[in-house]
Structures are given as C-alpha cells and as structure tokens.
Design a protein around this nucleic acid. Sequence first.
DNA 1: CCGTGGTTCAAACGTTCGTTTTAATCATAT
DNA 2: ATATGATTAAAACGAACGTTTGAACCACGG
Lengths: 238, 238
Amino acid sequence: MNENKTLPDTRERILDAAERLFMESGYEGTSMRMITGEAEVNLAAVNYHFGSKEALLREVFRRRLAWLNRERLAALDELEGKAAGEPLKPSAILEAFFGTLLRMGTDEALGGMTFLRLLGRTLTEPADFIRTFFAGEYAEVIERFKRALFRSLPEVPQEEIIWRFHLMLGAVSYAIAGTDALQVVTGCELDLDNEGPNAAKQLAARVMPFLLGGLRAPLPQFPAFEEQQNQSEPIKAA
Amino acid sequence: MNENKTLPDTRERILDAAERLFMESGYEGTSMRMITGEAEVNLAAVNYHFGSKEALLREVFRRRLAWLNRERLAALDELEGKAAGEPLKPSAILEAFFGTLLRMGTDEALGGMTFLRLLGRTLTEPADFIRTFFAGEYAEVIERFKRALFRSLPEVPQEEIIWRFHLMLGAVSYAIAGTDALQVVTGCELDLDNEGPNAAKQLAARVMPFLLGGLRAPLPQFPAFEEQQNQSEPIKAA
DNA sequence: CCGTGGTTCAAACGTTCGTTTTAATCATAT
DNA sequence: ATATGATTAAAACGAACGTTTGAACCACGG
C-alpha cells in the first residue's frame, strides 16, 4: 500500500547486517543466508525488499554515499566560495575530500568505522557490477576535486596529479580497510582502538600529513624518455 | 614415482591460469572449472596436484614470493653491508623494498604485471586463510625492513613509521592492483600501456617520489599529545 | 465485519560449487 | 613385453548458492 512510509525495520536491519558482513567477508564471501540470519529476517526478505543480492549491495552503499557525496561537494563549494576565484590550497582540498570521509568513521549514524572499512575493501572488489556502480556514484565528485587540484597545482602535469590522487586513494583505502589486514603483515597492533569515534580522529591526524607529503613530493624524473615529460597540458579532460 | 622431476607442464599451466584468473576475478570469484578450462587440463588435476583450491592459491603465491623475499633481503643485505653499521637512507630502503617489487612487473618470467596486480588485490581479500598465509610469508622480510626504517629515522616515533609503512603499502598495492579499478573512479586512462616491461618502469618512477614524500612528511600534531614535531619541511629530491 | 494489499514465512527450485571416486592411460625400469 | 606407479579422464557426490513460489499473516479502510 504505502511506498515510503516508515516501514518496520526489516529493510534497515538487512542493510545493517549486510554492511557488516560485506565488510567482514567480502561480497562473494557473504551469502544471503548469513545476512538474513544476522538480521533475523526471512531468507526471502532480501529479494522482496531489494530484488537481488547485487541490488542489496548497491543500496548498502547508496544510503551512505548520498551523504558523503553531498558533504564533500558542500565542503568544496564552501572553500571555493571563500577563495573568491583564487586557487585553493592543496591541503584544504585534501581536507575536504579525505577529512570528510574520515569523519564518517566518528559518526555511528553514518555507518562509523564499519562503513569506512567496507568502502576501502569494496573498492578493490573485482566484480564488474561493483566497479560500474562506483564509477557512477563517484564520477561527479571526483571530477570536481580533480579540477580543483589542477587549479591548485598548475605547475604539476595533470597526469601526475591524477596518479597521486590515485595513490592517495589507495593509501587511505588501505589504512581504513586493513586495520587488521596489514596488522597481520606488519605484525604490530597499531593500537588504534578500532571502534569508537577516537579511531577516526587519530586516523585523520596520522593520514593527512602523509598524503600531503606525497602530493607535494618532487616530480619524478624519467630515465631517458622520448619527448614527453611536458609541463602543463597532458591528457584529456571530460 | 618421481617426486621433483620435470613434470609435464600441467602444474605450471594450472598455476599460470590460476594466477591470471585470481587476478581478474578474485579468489571466490574464480571457480575450479574456470581454472581447469583455461589451463586445458582435467577438472580433477587441481586436487590431484595441489590438494585443494586453497592450497592452489598458496602455491600460486609461493612460487613468486620465494623470489621476491630472497631479492628483497639480498638488496637490504647489500645496503647494510655497504653502510658498514651506519643507518641507511630512507630512500635506499624504499628502493630495496618497493623497487624490487615493481621490478617484478618487468620480468614476465617472474609473473610480470599479472602477478603484481594479483598481489595488490589479494592483500585485501578478507578470507582468513589468505591473511594467515601472507602473515607467514611476509613476517621475516617486514621485520627486517621495519628495523632498518627505525634505525634510519631514529627521531620518528616507531609507531608513526609503522603507520607510514602501512600507508605506503596501501598506495603501492592500489597503484598496481587497480590500474583499471580506479581508472573507473578517476575516469581517466592513465595511459600506462598496461602490459609490457615499460609499465613497471613508469610505475616505479611515479610511485617512488610519492612514497618518499609521504614517509618524510612532517609528523602529525595530535590535539594535546606529547612533544615531538621535530622534522622540518620536506620536498627534497632523493 | 470482511476484504485488500503489503509483508513474512517455510519450502523448494535449478544451478554451481569444491571435491571424490573409479577406471583408463601413459612412461619407464626390469 | 610386462609390471608398476604416476598421471589423466569422465562422472558423480553432497553441500551451498541465489532465487522463486504460494500460502499464511497482519494492519487497516470500507
């Protein structure tokens, strides 16, 4: 009958359970029976409310990324408004992009660390439909921030900026996804009370200087390449 | 009868096919039938030669990591030999660790870019047996390099070094794993003729300055922590 | 009160998974 | 050539997967 009235919490319970389990075991490693079991709902409820497992995953992300995208764009808008046409400081851009993300980890209502880790992990999932989904969800925000970085660092080749954006994304994704994944590799606890709002604050304090250092590192010198290694106008721009 | 004589290439064909398919579709996303199909061997061959799918994955990595671990330790040994007791330069340590890795991408006999990308992706696989396996394979090498970094940067808190090591690993893993994973996010081709030996050379030239910049970035300032904040501005060629 | 439409439920669907079985085939040493 | 053990082959195993079915359930407007 109704379409958007407040439903019994079945939908939310499923989304919460799926969020946690996808984070813990990955998409392929999580079965519908695990999800409905943890959510304490009937097995058929997922297909009834969402249509399919793929659609469920998309919805898990949509309800979080809607906020994240809005917040990131708002932060950038405010920066650009204050700057009155002048290029922004790289550190301010990174703060708007990564700081906003990391702040999600402090707010349990936005998914907290669970969603942060899920996001970091899922970006490396090989499934095609996942990559396609993220491409669509991220397109606008990435484009805006890329442009801001181009303006902010006019002397750096745009291709290099994209690479470093890519590298920063990787570092952050790993840092939030793998608090235990690489704990195992580094063989060290990395303290970081994994849950709780402090985690994300510490994370931000540690990560931001690293990112900024990488972004502003000296440009690479290629061995003895051909003509390339130009200065300001490579690649396309959509 | 024999135990280690040169077998028909069945084993190698399986390993090659599994390497490529695990890279492309992940562990859970790759079925034994896909592997045996691509390798053009019988379905039962995997269980006959390796015992199980899990054991196959371990063997896929063992044959590559044996070389990588040996080479990394040899590079570090040589550096420490030349230094005659003095601490090493951070850039030299990073070159020994990440440069050796990236050089694998240039040598098809060592797995080339396929293995590099597989490695980057698999480090984020949530399956327990995978994380346990990597912990064991990496333990010694990580420990040696961690120690070298501690000695190299005595004024930096060890916890901070571990964090930055973690972040560097993440950046590199992403960079090599996701040449298309984040292509989709950045919406840009990032040229980089994805196969071939040039790819890894370019990759190294681009990645190493970023890592060094991140590693030597100024220390984070926590809301109200202890003293520190000793290092000066970075940005200095290697 | 009944009927209606949104929701839950147990059960089963067909498929695919990793693995095992049993027999055929191959290579080699005596 | 024949026996022997290593390898390959075809077929089947039970379990688990995502999804669908059709009846039961519930709230509520008439």
